[in-house]
């Protein structure tokens, strides 16, 4: 079942680029990454899903219901963490969380305490006095206190130290195990790689590809680095599917896409002293998608 279905969603703001013709689905129970650099349209897409802004054309459904028409109903089961958190001045953390909880028809007191403990958040402080990282924690607790079925996160890790980030990811994985679906928007690839099953890559307001993280990696280049005993003919590895062939002294490196046996046979025929075969990280794949059309 799809929790989020986005169909040809377009949002234009006057002359400025918004998003155009975006379509993808997020399935129940998955952690879905939404990745692209700043200004690519991630926040615009999310804000349209939340009916903070309305689509110019196209539509989206969440839990099978139209996001504009049934906005208040859908939001009962959504927890959202915006990229920049700003809260009402002059409120204590506790007051804000209780205010947030008052919108949901369930008792969230226990969950607030649990979350505050996990995230190491002082409930009695004034929000004004908190650091950026601590404000972010308030945002996290605020987004999760009603145990939502769909969690939408827009650049959630900025301002969190690595330790907190780790705790936060564990918290998300725990929520996911309990059945929550997560849409995770980010421009940091390693965190998406760490957390997500599938990913949509957005570029200049358009979706470039939607793939499983594992497929993304399979369908791309492998990096070979071969160290030989003697100097090698630079043309030796010049096969079909080889790219960026470089030879320096006894070191030969290249990227390869295709049947890996072809390369292995070639390597077996020569005397080597060392060999490295590496998976490209998501960063390199990502750059590949970005450079292709540049």
């Amino acid at each position: 079942m799809n929790v989020i279905e986005i169909k040809n969603l377009t949002k234009t703001y006057g002359k400025a680029r918004g998003i155009s013709d975006i379509s993808f689905n997020v399935e129940e129970g998955e952690i879905f990454g939404f990745i692209g650099p700043n200004g690519a349209g991630k926040s615009t897409t999310i804000r349209t899903l939340l009916s903070l802004i309305y689509p110019t054309s196209g539509s989206a459904t969440i839990f099978g219901k139209d996001t504009v028409q049934f906005a208040p109903e859908i939001k009962k089961e959504i927890g959202y963490l915006p990229s920049e958190v700003f809260y009402y001045d002059n409120m204590k953390v506790k007051d804000l969380l209780n205010y947030s909880a008052s919108f949901y028809k369930k008792d969230c007191k226990k969950r607030i305490k649990e979350l505050a403990e996990i995230m190491d958040l002082d409930l009695n402080k004034k929000i004004d006095d908190l650091s950026l990282g601590n404000k972010k924690k308030v945002g996290i607790v605020q987004g999760l206190l009603h145990e939502p079925k769909l969690i939408i996160l827009d650049e959630p890790t900025s301002g969190l130290d690595p330790l907190m980030q780790q705790k936060f990811f564990e918290l998300l994985e725990e929520e996911n195990r309990k059945g929550a679906t997560i849409l995770f928007s980010s421009h940091i690839l390693t965190e998406v790689q760490r957390l997500c099953n599938r990913v949509a890559i957005i570029k200049e307001g358009k979706i470039v590809t939607v793939e499983k993280i594992s497929t993304l990696k399979e369908n791309t280049y492998k990096k070979f680095k071969v160290e030989t005993k003697s100097t090698l003919d630079p043309a030796y590895f010049n096969l079909k599917g080889v790219n960026k062939l470089e030879t320096k002294d006894n070191m030969t490196s290249f990227l390869f896409k295709g049947n890996i046996n072809d390369v292995m046979r070639k390597i077996a025929d020569i005397e080597i002293s060392n060999l490295w075969i590496e998976e490209p990280d998501l960063e390199e794949i990502f750059m590949h998608y970005y450079e292709k059309e540049a």
């Binding site: 939340l50 903070l52 947030s100 919108f103 949901y104």
Partner: peptide, 17 residues
């Protein structure tokens, strides 16, 4: 103005309310 709209309007309330 205070950027709290991203807090308030993602709660299950309609704009009319």
């Amino acid at each position: 103005r205070d950027k709290t709209s991203e807090f308030l309007f993602v709660k299950p309330v309609s704009r009319n309310r």
